[in-house]
């Protein structure tokens, strides 16, 4: 993965983006699970990114961590996993 497609700015160099965190393990759990635990899925990672070097929008990114390829990039607003 060398670029990410911002829904507002189009495909931009990866350096412009900052990874913030992955979505928590699925299920309605407590604070501990939410903060600390992750379910490793080699095919899908749901992540928060920010386009810090561009429009500064918060993004919800679906990515395949085995191929590195982004599957979907959309505005985070109201979509926090």
């Amino acid at each position: 993965m060398t670029r990410l497609a911002c829904p507002f700015c189009g495909p931009r160099e990866l350096r412009e983006f900052e990874f913030h965190k992955t979505g928590p393990a699925a299920g309605g759990q407590g604070e501990f699970e939410r903060v600390y635990l992750r379910v490793a899925d080699p095919q899908l990672s749901i992540e928060h990114w920010q386009h810090v070097g561009g429009c500064r929008a918060w993004l919800l990114v679906h990515r395949n961590p085995s191929s590195g390829l982004p599957l979907a990039v959309e505005l985070l607003a109201g979509n926090a996993p």
Partner: peptide
């Protein structure tokens, strides 16, 4: 690199 990955391909930046 700063984000989860199994690719073993380092990010250029």
């Amino acid at each position: 690199d700063g984000f989860p990955s199994y690719t073993r391909e380092g990010a250029w930046h």
